[in-house]
Simulated scan of single mutants.
Amino acid sequence: MRIVGLQARRGWLPALARAHVQAFGTLLPAWTVEQAEAELRMQRDDTIPCTWVAEDDTGWLGSVSLLHDDHEQIRGWSPWLASLYVRPTARGRGVGARLVRHCVAHAAQLGVPRLYLYCEAAMVPWYRALGWAPHTRLQLGPLAVTVMQIDPAPP
């Protein structure tokens, strides 16, 4: 498995946009595949916002993004590890953990002192095992979420 910047795999933009809207559209009901694709298309690999893709010889396995803002209700914290998505056929193989570690390492290279994410309660232990700590709990649209934080180690 390799992790590459999305800009190196632009052909996967439509499929990633569809997967993101399907997975995360509950929080953003007006979000369209076209909007998701446009957002992904504008990103660069060397700054925020950026997205990485895990791949192997069969194709893309998952993705993760580093964003300044992740949801209009939580603009007080930044930046965010966001849109962690692993294709169902690739789950349980460590793809998500590798993507999270890659994103945190890149944030450290960019000098980010604190990185945030939000997740549902069932995922808190998984993120704790990767070094994240709960920051606060809040309601985002229809979901009760835990905002978690990590201080990326400097390179």
Score class of each variant (00 low, 15 high):
1 M>F: 08
6 L>Q: 03
7 Q>R: 15
9 R>P: 00
9 R>Q: 09
11 G>S: 13
13 L>W: 05
15 A>S: 09
15 A>R: 03
15 A>C: 02
22 Q>P: 00
23 A>T: 05
23 A>K: 04
24 F>G: 01
25 G>Q: 05
26 T>F: 06
29 P>C: 10
29 P>I: 13
33 V>I: 07
33 V>M: 03
34 E>G: 08
35 Q>R: 12
36 A>L: 07
39 E>A: 14
39 E>L: 13
41 R>G: 06
41 R>E: 15
43 Q>F: 04
43 Q>P: 00
45 D>R: 02
46 D>S: 11
47 T>K: 04
48 I>Y: 07
48 I>S: 06
49 P>V: 14
49 P>W: 08
50 C>Y: 04
51 T>Y: 08
51 T>I: 05
54 A>S: 07
56 D>M: 09
57 D>M: 06
58 T>E: 12
59 G>R: 06
59 G>V: 12
61 L>H: 01
62 G>K: 01
62 G>P: 00
63 S>I: 12
64 V>N: 03
65 S>R: 06
66 L>A: 09
67 L>N: 10
67 L>M: 14
67 L>I: 12
68 H>Q: 12
71 H>M: 08
72 E>R: 11
73 Q>G: 04
74 I>Y: 02
75 R>Y: 09
76 G>L: 11
76 G>D: 13
78 S>Y: 07
80 W>L: 10
81 L>R: 03
82 A>R: 06
82 A>V: 08
87 R>H: 11
89 T>S: 15
89 T>L: 14
90 A>K: 02
94 G>L: 11
96 G>F: 05
96 G>H: 03
100 V>K: 06
100 V>C: 14
101 R>E: 15
103 C>D: 08
103 C>S: 15
104 V>D: 07
104 V>P: 01
105 A>G: 14
105 A>R: 15
106 H>F: 15
108 A>H: 10
110 L>H: 12
113 P>E: 15
116 Y>R: 09
116 Y>T: 02
117 L>E: 04
118 Y>I: 05
118 Y>T: 02
119 C>H: 02
120 E>W: 05
122 A>H: 15
123 M>A: 15
124 V>A: 10
130 L>I: 02
130 L>R: 03
132 W>K: 01
135 H>I: 03
135 H>P: 00
136 T>Q: 12
136 T>S: 13
138 L>G: 01
140 L>K: 02
141 G>I: 11
141 G>N: 02
144 A>V: 01
146 T>N: 01
147 V>N: 04
149 Q>F: 04
149 Q>C: 08
149 Q>D: 09
149 Q>S: 12
151 D>W: 11
153 A>E: 14
154 P>C: 13
155 P>Q: 04
